[in-house]
């Protein structure tokens, strides 16, 4: 019996489904994942334009984060919850207002014009 843990990338949508500076929600392995695309300018501080975090807002207690506004607060690349505007770091999942409310992040990539999330398979 194999105990090796393997991973695979699962496509959740087309790249052009994701409009710049907005997010959408994908159902991934039974979980709700918010995926965002930011616009990268020439001298941008960021090397990646797509990010994925949990869609669940632990403060507002609803699956809404994919519908939040994107931006930066200092060095943090964030989404602001559409309910009560707490900021969640897109890279670390940290909640800037309350470190006890940090959320899960997901690995995400663009592959052949598809957006893929990483799935862990046992």
């Amino acid at each position: 019996m194999s105990t090796a843990i393997s991973t695979e990338w699962i496509s959740v949508c087309q790249d052009n489904d994701l409009i710049e500076n907005t997010g959408l929600c994908a159902l991934h392995d039974g979980e709700q994942v918010a995926i965002f695309k930011i616009s990268l300018s020439e001298n941008s501080a960021y090397d990646q334009d797509i990010y994925a975090i949990s869609n669940y807002d632990p403060i507002g207690k609803a699956n809404v984060l994919s519908r939040g506004l994107l931006g930066n607060i200092g060095d943090h690349l964030v989404v602001a919850s559409p309910l009560y505007k707490q900021h969640f770091d897109l890279i670390t999942g940290e909640c800037l207002e309350d470190s006890e409310q940090n959320i899960k992040t997901y690995e995400v990539r663009r592959f052949n014009n598809e957006i893929q999330l990483k799935k862990t398979v046992q």
């Binding site: 409009i19 710049e20 500076n21 907005t22 507002g60 609803a62 699956n63 809404v64 519908r67 939040g68 506004l69 994107l70 559409p82 309910l83």
Partner: peptide
């Protein structure tokens, strides 16, 4: 519109008033 959609707040962006459960 593509260049404006990312600016719209919670309600405007889906042309409805978001309630507490989303």
């Amino acid at each position: 519109k593509k260049e404006h959609i990312g600016l719209q707040d919670t309600n405007d962006v889906y042309l409805g008033n978001m309630q507490k459960d989303g």
